[in-house]
Nucleic acid binder design. Sequence first.
DNA 1: ACACAAGTAGACAAGTCGGTCTACTTCATA
DNA 2: TATGAAGTAGACCGACTTGTCTACTTGTGT
Lengths: 187, 187
Amino acid sequence: MSAKRQQLILNAFALFYEKGVHAVGINEVLAVSGIAKKTLYTHFASKEELVCAVLEYRNAAYLRWLEQRLDAANEGVAKVDALFDALDDWFHDREEVLFPFHGCFFMNVSGEYGDPECAIHQQCAKHKVDVEAIVLRAVKTLDLSEQACAELAAMLCLLKDGAISKARVQGDKTAAASAKKVARQLV
Amino acid sequence: MSAKRQQLILNAFALFYEKGVHAVGINEVLAVSGIAKKTLYTHFASKEELVCAVLEYRNAAYLRWLEQRLDAANEGVAKVDALFDALDDWFHDREEVLFPFHGCFFMNVSGEYGDPECAIHQQCAKHKVDVEAIVLRAVKTLDLSEQACAELAAMLCLLKDGAISKARVQGDKTAAASAKKVARQLV
DNA sequence: ACACAAGTAGACAAGTCGGTCTACTTCATA
DNA sequence: TATGAAGTAGACCGACTTGTCTACTTGTGT
């Protein structure tokens, strides 16, 4: 049944996100989920495969959330504001779908899997590309050239990740507001 | 002898930085260092204490490097350029003292130690405060009000950490140059 | 009604983890 | 010269790791 699989992914994500992947054992995931070990290993060949599935899940959930937030905003500069307002809500745990804030899951995981060639690290890199694509789409509603849009999107992502990192490491939840100020100056 | 201690810290840092703290066991550190386990435990009460010492070492080395790079630049906007030029050299492994680039060690480690109350996480937060203080000192050579200096320093740090994160996760070593462009627009 | 897939609990294997300890060797200095 | 600190190698401990496997139970579709 796919329900068990989904449950495992969800519980694994919550634990991995809070404590780090290496710090959480399979047994802990199973205990929290109330699922037998054999069931896990019928759905996933290894812990690494579970980690990949978790990354995939989080990527989809995060993109869906971000897309929705940006779509809801008016076209033009309001899209830029919407990006950082969304971050602000995330940092302040006002978005249940994203789970309690512990920074960017993909930054955290790629820190644990040093080798840039490995599948896990590359999934993290892909997430950042996906996010930038969504930001780019929003930015294209501004009255700018193709090239200017691409550059602006890249810069906004730079600010976004800086803010996420600051909110995570220093616990400074106002980082989104600061980044918003900078973004305003840029557009 | 303090030489063994220093050797342990150095080798441990190289391994932790490359592979992550949880992914590296005490035994691996010892094997690489050619040092007996007992010696390690005469210098450090536990692995956690070793991790703390490693964080302390890296913080000092990084601050020294950054301070020197910023001091060497002319006063004024050149200081801002110097910051991102320094990052660019780091990303491209042109700074041996910083070891091969694997992102910000403190971001990586704080991702592995989720609890923001624990000593390790707080040491990571302190590093970011220390860095911002150095950036602030450099920014103060610009002709700006106290408040404007503080805000600019915070924004530059946001950009800096965004660039580090991008260079790390996506392997995009040009991130420093992009961040420099944004910074130029801000000053 | 019955077969079969999917679930359960949990013992077990093989290995690694952090950490302790014994027994021995250097080596500097009082 | 003798003592004690600091080093060595590595056996050992208990706990934990991922992953396999057995034996049993549940539930659904034909």
